[in-house]
Design a protein around this nucleic acid. Structure first.
Lengths: 103, 103
DNA sequence: TCGGTTGGTTAGTCATAGCTTGCGTTAGTC
DNA sequence: GACTAACGCAAGCTATGACTAACCAACCGA
């Protein structure tokens, strides 16, 4: 869906974040990922389904294997989100510094 | 702790994200936040504790109220994290485009 | 054709954490 | 000194979701 909220929900989970980080280095198959993680292939597969459903990763079949890769565009959306977020917080910080108190 | 992983764990939660977004506009007290959210003051307070423990928000006492504000530095860390993340994924994407297959 | 590999699916378990309720505390106000 | 408003804390409930185990399907090589 490439919606920032859904993307953040998905990548907010620690294990999923590790998976995406690993895929950002280079694309990999399910069993490759499971080898480095303390969870079963099934769990990895389920995480990948979540990541795929929000558009964070893409997959392509290569024989019996399935190669998963990060979609840079999805990361760009998250990047833009925090960019704007950070800018706003800076402005609010500056405002708060001027007006010692209000309300 | 201003550690990217802890920050992302904290901001990965939907309600907490809303709270931080609201605080990024301008600092607010617990009851102010609770007014706009479908949860109790207590729940908001608990979320703020989590956010505070990872350094995403700061608080200062003003009489009986407690004014919470976003720490722009924490958002900067997250921003930098996804910035690097995105860059890496772009590189991986370019690599994958060159080498059609490997392993 | 058959065994081995890979991976998606489903059912079911279990722990985590988000939330509410109730109480105690502190700081302003009359 | 009482009264109230604003929070934090602790206990307990509950639902969500992360995970495993078992099964099935597809593809490949001998």
């Amino acid at each position: 869906m490439t919606n920032a909220n859904a993307l953040l929900d998905a990548i907010g989970e620690r294990t999923r974040r590790k998976i995406v980080e690993r895929l950002a280095e280079r694309p990999a198959a399910v069993s490759d990922l499971a080898r480095d993680l303390p969870i079963t292939r099934s769990a990895v597969s389920q995480h990948l389904q979540v990541l795929k459903s929000v558009g964070l990763v893409t997959d392509r079949a290569v024989g019996t294997r399935r190669i998963y890769a990060v979609d840079p565009e999805a990361l760009a959306i998250i990047r833009a989100y925090f960019d704007a977020f950070w800018t706003r917080s800076l402005a609010a910080f500056a405002d708060a510094a001027e007006q010692p108190e209000d309300t």
